[in-house]
């Protein structure tokens, strides 16, 4: 467990450092995630070294954003005032993403299959 934590927090820490040094506009956690993937791919980190903790964290992902979600209570007035734009924009955009992603995949795959 200690090794698992060291690896995960090592990747996260490296991400934080990179953001600190370069000012890049990317969440440190995403950099850490890509770094972890890279280390696994290179074989520098073995899958069983991180599997237990990462499975646990991913399985309970939903729980970790409950507390920040509760902060919603601070913004009820903003949400009430802009309820219609929030809901409409979200619904329209979600339907668009579904269809357009599917179309693009079908189209590109059809093109490359014909060659």
């Amino acid at each position: 467990m200690v090794r698992q934590c060291a690896i995960l927090f090592g990747c996260l820490g490296a991400g934080e450092l990179l953001v600190f040094l370069t000012g890049i506009k990317l969440p440190s956690s995403i950099i850490g995630m890509l770094l972890l993937t890279l280390l696994l791919k290179l074989g520098w980190v073995k899958l069983e070294w991180v599997k237990g903790l990462s499975d646990f964290l991913i399985a309970n992902l939903g729980f970790f954003f409950v507390p920040p979600g509760v902060a919603l209570m601070l913004y009820f007035d903003i949400i009430a005032a802009q309820f219609v734009p929030i809901v409409l924009a979200t619904v329209v955009s979600t339907a668009l993403v579904l269809v357009v992603t599917g179309w693009t995949h079908q189209w590109v795959r059809g093109k490359s299959a014909k060659k």
Binding site: L8, K51, D55, I58
Partner: peptide
């Protein structure tokens, strides 16, 4: 109190590197 739970959000995102791999 919530911060202690919230804290694990970032490590959990890093953990997503495993399924990506």
């Amino acid at each position: 109190g919530g911060m202690m739970i919230d804290f694990w959000l970032k490590p959990a995102v890093v953990a997503l590197g495993v399924p990506l791999y």
